[in-house]
Amino acid sequence: MAIDIDQLVSDMKTAASGVLNADVSTFRGFSERQLKAIAQQAALVATGIETRQITEETEQFFLDSLEDMALSFAKTLRGLLMVTIEKVWNAIVGVLWNAISDAAGVVLPVPVKN
């Protein structure tokens, strides 16, 4: 049996869209929360230093932490993206493998690349 290319493309798009639509809302929510919280934290630290309510004991700690939080946010976002890429990739591979299995008339288990 020949593979219907148009149908295969459509099935792959559907598989990828299903994953992306769900995950993009997570990215958006996470990014908005984090950016807002980091901005508020920066404002709080600035006010605390200005009013001397943030003491010498903690001033440098909070300043160093602001930089680290921003970097850690970027790394976490990248980690989330990797999970989504994995899910999209595997969804597409699953669709392709099913199409190949149907066309070839044999059941082909999807091998895993680690």
Partner: peptide, 15 residues
């Protein structure tokens, strides 16, 4: 069939 095989490198991935 061969093109399909080649296009996906034939593997699911864990990232």
């Amino acid at each position: 069939l061969v093109a399909a095989f080649l296009s996906i490198a034939g593997c699911a991935a864990q990232l």
